[in-house]
Amino acid sequence: MGITEKINDLRDIKSWHGEMPVQYLYTYGIAGEKLFRAIKDEKKFLATKCPDCNFVYLPPRIYCQECFTNLENSWREVENKGEVHSFTIVYLDIENKPLDVPEVIALIRIKGTNGGFIHKLGEINPEKVNIGLEVKAVFKEKREGNILDIQYFKPV
């Protein structure tokens, strides 16, 4: 093995930058299109339910992962409320700088579904968050049809 430099302090490691100059433009898909249109136009959450497995998909899917039943005609509105299934409090940003206000990120299980969303919690003191806390979605005023149309979830 050829060694061109010896580094004792890992912070001095040098690298060679290459890049892959591409960008991505994703489609929402059949299920995603419905979900985000309902959020944007009606501030509603839509889920699909497998009639055979009784599993309620949120985010919605057009098929049951268990039995492959087609769910394209099995849509239902669900509440925009749920409970904190687990959470973390984030203190540093991606560059390791302390955040002015710590952020609370939670897995929120939406009522009446077997799923939910990963999202931020707001209007709450991070020290007051607990597993099981009941929360509801706060939607943005100007919505564009994406996951950030939900501003955050706040305590009920």
Partner: peptide, 8 residues
């Protein structure tokens, strides 16, 4: 270009 995702 399909509306469907790769999974769909």
């Amino acid at each position: 270009r399909s509306l469907e995702t790769g999974k769909e």
